[in-house]
Design a protein around this nucleic acid. Structure first.
Lengths: 346, 346
DNA sequence: CTGAAAGCGCTTACAG
DNA sequence: CTGAAAGCGCTTACAG
């Protein structure tokens, strides 16, 4: 009885007793020394296994009280990133998970850095990684999948490999709703200023915009579709300049992000145009920054914090080895009408 | 001779001998236990330092490939925090240091959570902690000092213990410069809307403002000094409301932060007041948010990213056991004149 | 608050 | 190759 019961403590002495040898001999096996008879070694290895023995070093890394995940963002100083990250950190605190944050920068990381990062994650026993809006390629993702490191991406620039979980919002529906809001106010000449052109979320917003116009029998004017290049303020400034240079400028603008909208707002002010008196403006993201500016921005709100939480929730499930029901989590967007939209002037 | 020579091995027993105490007592100090007399503790700490003693856990973390530090912020969704954090992360990436970020929340953490956090830091072999604008009390700081964990605070709310390194900006000089800029434009009725009243940086800005007024022979009107309570937008909204309710409202406002200034801007717009036509406005921080709003904010710029870098630089020096020349790093502020200030109307 | 004593888990040196 | 013995570095429990 006593012999088959698992010992209370997996010590060298307990294992020695179990294997019918002395403590020093077990010590030698654990430390990989040569001078042990093959059969003795085999018996000891079995006993070690059965007792679940961990060397002091191993114990430390198992005793690790904390779960650590990594979060990679492309830029930190954006209201979008900050709010997503805030959602992740809130949920992490509640789950007693620690979060390592790093900024990837806008440039595409090399495969080599991805390999290094993935290997370090394994070495340090990290539970997984959340990638926010970053440009990891298929090859780089492979570095993580090969090591079975759970990964979740939020609003990826490149479509992620099929087996990587991604979290986003209903961008197409949001783009459609924003445009419909402007159509209902009576606007017919509506422009779209986008962010990163190839980004999935940008494409979806653009196509939602086009769908709304089509549904109202309005043909899409290609001059009204501006590719800003980035989701940041300067895209709004340059986009607005381009639109105001047209023979027939639009009476309303749908911006692909609140940051872009802020650039539009600034350029409008510098041209002496009132928002919404002279031109209506809808943003995207529903960030605090858009809420706090003057005039307060009508915007398509994404549940940014909830997206962060959902990403972490999915990551922790993967880390626990649970089977996931879905590889794409899409949260609802909704239009928040504030001060920057009104009926057209004429 | 033998007594002063550095022992071959930095063991507890060796340290005990050096400090003239028993091994168990040294063990207590190393493990952060309370029940050791202050003078005994001090003597032991010196001996530990001199012997270069590492606990088993620390020994292991020396072998560790990565250096991990922790950063605690009070709120994440503020341009101030984000820019400081960005500075930390940039420098960390360059130094191959990993950064664990957590949000403390506005409420004062308990001593118990500080103890837990400090113990975990030791267990996990973390190199140190940077605290951004958080309200750690003397008792909580003690949890870290007792375990010899390097700590650097940025713009602390409570004055930090004398031996904790703090990083900040020349707040007094900045407050003075902001006020002088308004005085030079011809303003005489200048108000100050502050943030967290007891915060050192707030006090310094306020006294800089008062010093500038005094130097121009203008008596300070207590009605013009508003305590917003927080460095956030709503303080600006409520502060502006209070000022506009006065018999003689000010012609210029110096806000204790850009966020507060944004609230002032919004409230001014809602009251039909033009900035800077009807009222001039200066912010503090020099955040991107203040740069991007309409009108672009005149502001006292703090080198936020540089403050983050300086904090990490000092932390890493402490972690390497280097002796620090200064326990207070103060970086220069400067006024950036943009669109929100002009000569008074009359 | 301190430390003598006992003990824990492991390793080392060496006799057989 | 094996293990009794000694020892190391640290911690725990507790008497004073």
């Amino acid at each position: 009885m006593a012999k088959t019961a698992r010992p209370a403590k997996a010590t060298l002495a307990a294992v020695a007793l179990q294997a019918g040898v002395s403590t020093p001999t077990v010590s030698k096996v654990v430390n990989g020394r040569e001078d042990v008879a093959p059969e003795t070694r085999a018996r000891i290895l079995t006993a070690l296994e059965q007792a679940g023995y961990k060397s002091p070093v191993q114990r430390r890394s198992v005793a690790r009280t904390s779960t650590v995940i990594e979060v990679v963002v492309d830029v930190l100083t954006s209201a979008y990133t900050t709010e997503v990250l805030d959602g992740i950190l809130q949920f992490a605190a509640a789950e007693d998970v620690e979060v390592l944050v790093s900024v990837a920068g806008p440039s595409t990381p090399t495969v080599h850095t991805a390999e290094r990062r993935a290997q370090r994650m394994v070495d340090e026993g990290r539970a997984g990684m959340i990638v926010v809006t970053s440009a990891f390629s298929e090859a780089q993702m492979h570095a993580f999948r090969r090591r079975r490191i759970p990964v979740v991406v939020i609003d990826p620039l490149n479509p992620p490999p099929a087996d990587v979980v991604s979290v986003g919002a209903t961008n197409w529906a949001g783009g459609k709703a924003a445009t419909e809001h402007l159509l209902e106010l009576g606007h017919r000449r509506i422009a779209y200023i986008g962010g990163i052109e190839r980004a999935e979320c940008n494409q979806a917003r653009l196509h939602g915009y086009m769908a709304a116009l089509a549904a109202h029998g309005i043909s899409v004017d290609p001059q009204y579709i501006i590719s800003g290049g980035r989701f940041r303020r300067d895209s709004g400034v340059s986009g607005m300049k381009a639109l105001l240079g047209l023979k027939k400028p639009p009476t309303a603008i749908f911006a692909g992000s609140d940051s872009i909208a802020l650039g539009v707002l600034s350029e409008a002010a510098h041209c002496g145009l009132k928002v919404p008196g002279d031109i209506s403006l809808v943003g995207f993201d529903g960030t605090i920054q858009g809420e706090e500016c003057v005039p307060a921005l009508t915007s398509v709100a994404q549940p940014l914090e909830e997206m962060g939480r959902a990403a972490l929730r999915s990551l922790l499930r993967q880390a626990r080895g649970e089977v996931l029901d879905s590889h794409r989590v899409e949260l609802a967007t909704h239009v928040i009408v504030r001060e920057s939209t009104a009926a057209p002037a004429d």
